[in-house]
Simulated scan of single mutants.
Amino acid sequence: MIIEEIVANIDDLDATELEKRHKEKVYLESAHLMKRIQRVKTDHNRELGIRLKNPKDLEAGDVLFMDDENMIIIDVLSDDLLVIRPRNMNEMGTIAHELGNRHLPAQFDEDAMLVQYDYLVEELLLEMNIPFAREERKVEKPFRHIGHSHD
């Protein structure tokens, strides 16, 4: 089966629509959410080809296939993350500047900044005495590098 477009996201579906269907999942690493063309396997060992027509990243909960009885859903594997919780605006600005200079992609979750684990960043956070924790977490969207040069 070749998937060329996303049917929906489970967050947009009615609960009764979800309950009445058997669910298969495709588990992806967060970095693979950006890939428009890939071969994947469901948790029921069914092979699928994904070749998206539109340039849109996959997200956790995206429905790749749905009929009256079944649906195939994207789920994301946990990432090794540094969860940074600055105590004030000065710490937030300082660490954001440092990470930006390293061109590290970040995501934000309520009061925390999330970056993929890097031992150099961990050392920097310890040196700067900025609160953080190393956690395994699922992210719904990929960490995206922004193209930039210092011309």
Rank of each mutant, 00 (worst) to 15 (best):
residue 2 I to A: 03
residue 6 I to V: 15
residue 6 I to S: 13
residue 7 V to E: 08
residue 9 N to Q: 00
residue 9 N to F: 01
residue 10 I to M: 13
residue 11 D to E: 14
residue 15 A to P: 14
residue 17 E to K: 06
residue 18 L to H: 12
residue 22 H to E: 11
residue 23 K to P: 02
residue 25 K to A: 01
residue 26 V to S: 11
residue 34 M to K: 15
residue 35 K to N: 12
residue 38 Q to N: 11
residue 38 Q to V: 09
residue 40 V to Y: 12
residue 50 I to P: 08
residue 51 R to P: 05
residue 52 L to I: 12
residue 53 K to M: 12
residue 55 P to N: 13
residue 59 E to G: 01
residue 62 D to S: 05
residue 64 L to S: 09
residue 65 F to C: 06
residue 69 E to D: 14
residue 71 M to L: 10
residue 74 I to E: 02
residue 77 L to M: 13
residue 77 L to D: 10
residue 78 S to F: 00
residue 78 S to C: 00
residue 81 L to F: 07
residue 82 L to G: 01
residue 86 P to G: 05
residue 87 R to N: 11
residue 89 M to L: 12
residue 90 N to I: 11
residue 92 M to Y: 15
residue 96 A to Y: 10
residue 96 A to K: 11
residue 97 H to C: 06
residue 97 H to A: 07
residue 98 E to P: 04
residue 105 P to R: 02
residue 106 A to W: 05
residue 106 A to Q: 11
residue 112 A to R: 09
residue 115 V to Y: 09
residue 115 V to Q: 08
residue 119 Y to N: 13
residue 121 V to D: 03
residue 122 E to Q: 12
residue 126 L to C: 06
residue 128 M to G: 03
residue 128 M to N: 04
residue 132 F to S: 03
residue 132 F to M: 04
residue 133 A to M: 02
residue 141 K to F: 02
residue 142 P to R: 08
residue 143 F to R: 07
residue 146 I to F: 10
residue 148 H to C: 05
residue 149 S to M: 15
residue 150 H to T: 13
residue 151 D to S: 06
